[in-house]
Design a protein around this nucleic acid. Sequence first.
DNA 1: TGAAAAAGGTAAAACGTTTTATGTATAATT
DNA 2: AATTATACATAAAACGTTTTACCTTTTTCA
Lengths: 333, 333
Amino acid sequence: MKSLSIKDIAVKAGVSITTVSFIINGKARDKSISEAVIKKVEKIIVESGYKPNQIARSLRTGNSNIIGLIVEDISNSFFSRIARLIEDKAYKKGYKIIYSSTENRIEKAKELINMFKSRKVDGYIISPIKGLEEDIQQLMADNKPVILFDRNLPDLDTNYVGADHFKATYHSIEHFIKQGKKKISLITIDIDVQQITERLAAYKKALTDYDIPYDEKLVLKVHFNQNENETMVQMAKLFQTEEIDAVLFATNYLAISGLKVLKQTGKKIGDDFSVIAYDDHEVFELHTPGISAVQQPLEEIAETVIQLILSQLSSKTKLDNEHIILPAKLIER
Amino acid sequence: MKSLSIKDIAVKAGVSITTVSFIINGKARDKSISEAVIKKVEKIIVESGYKPNQIARSLRTGNSNIIGLIVEDISNSFFSRIARLIEDKAYKKGYKIIYSSTENRIEKAKELINMFKSRKVDGYIISPIKGLEEDIQQLMADNKPVILFDRNLPDLDTNYVGADHFKATYHSIEHFIKQGKKKISLITIDIDVQQITERLAAYKKALTDYDIPYDEKLVLKVHFNQNENETMVQMAKLFQTEEIDAVLFATNYLAISGLKVLKQTGKKIGDDFSVIAYDDHEVFELHTPGISAVQQPLEEIAETVIQLILSQLSSKTKLDNEHIILPAKLIER
DNA sequence: TGAAAAAGGTAAAACGTTTTATGTATAATT
DNA sequence: AATTATACATAAAACGTTTTACCTTTTTCA
């Protein structure tokens, strides 16, 4: 069954396509269409259940009321929660979100951007990876609003919303030190984005500030795309060979893998072995003992991102790029 | 900067738009375009970075290479993991997925279907809710492939992929009984879909089969959309007023809320109080003690769903609807 | 009363593709 | 040499909208 077109409505109402279009788009009064005609056409539209073909509409207007959201991995709870919040808020403003995962793969990310581009999405929300600079630059050159979140690309002058990872990390390490810890390990990934490298920098800075020597052997940089088993083997080895009394995990999935290792090897978390995870997760709340975690303000991040992109979308002139850094807080458990 | 159109390429190559189109769509040899022209045009396309406008393409062809995925809540790990798997597999076949959450709200679900419809998605993968029957029927009348998963709508003759919830639940209760449990509680939601009601039915059946009287007071039906705190209060009350020696939680988020309650109230899971959760989650693996869980075969579900929809998409004739029930297994911890 | 303005409306171009029908020149066949 | 096939290519219609420019008729007001 063919779906109805504006033409069918026009015929049924005995008016022109133009008139129907004006009515649909709320321009009827502007264009001085009589109340009687408006009523009649609206009635027919409702009764027939006609819905404008968005594809045709997009082709003509060049925009889609769709915002593209590109994340690393939608099955990671940090991203899926943000996605859900963003979706929710955008939805209320009449925008739809379409999202996709890059899996940290640069070619996939580029393909996704291309796909979004050819679908004429109105704006982009991206948790970027290194190597995407040029493509993002291109989007901005095309005058499309772009908001980066979670991770920043320092070479790029864009809108960015993220948490204060340096401060949060520094604070976490400081927390360990004040508990009397000396052999503090950092388990992180080897991905080259500011938000991750910052965590390492803060780790080093905190140690130096408190006169604790930086020991390379206590830092484990896991390859960002390797499978979990391998990661767990590396962690187990680290925990065995080095005498560690505290660990900061730089991402929640690293922390989860770490907890699995501890459980398997029977190593207990307690007074002589502390753990902090980055990005909160239900696992940490329910774990016995509870796992302290750096909690990013998800709600605020989502809110800020969506507000930023909406203001760009509605503004005719190009707005200045904003960098918004929100505080993250350490949840002690 | 306006993006390139097929016309620009045609002009640059000194051929007609038609010729370029044939080449882009791999029909050149069919339409006997000379090798020389093909090479020349392809070169220009690559050099200029031209990408066809998918909107225009969709308008003309009536399809989009997009599959719409509608879930209850993308931030629920069950759905986000399925989504990720589906996305992955679809991607490899040249399909993109756009997904959205219904939040169990019927009007939102209807709106989403309408949006997908007006975006001309090629097929639908839906984890449905009651009240959507008519809309889904409509999609099928429009000859669009529809695959339901996780939940089924019994009144509807559609494709469906899901786990054997009855058997898994029965098995779980049986497991409790064999451990000598007598006061077995079921905590579920009050949503009216087969997959949930089945769990209740299996619970009752298992009890009867083993001559344990069914006690309504041991069954808590949580309102599907209420906030977590309220749910936790209800659970706490149940745990206090009834002498319960085992609980089956009908969804993973209910189990997580339940674990929180147990932690807060200091009630210990052990020999005299057992717990099984429905749908596995990292929390259950890492919890001390480990929480047994019914694990649905995510990978197989995703694989089956995608395979089903792809075969429907590529088949010219309407294929028979299939009901595929995959076994779920109880992970004992 | 006549000119200007407002009310009420529409035809047709444009967005960027795909596809059908059709064309001409050359090669092959009788 | 006349016919037929084939290689090579294109013009134009169609998809369903929005929007610009334009057209009548009626009202207003100097």
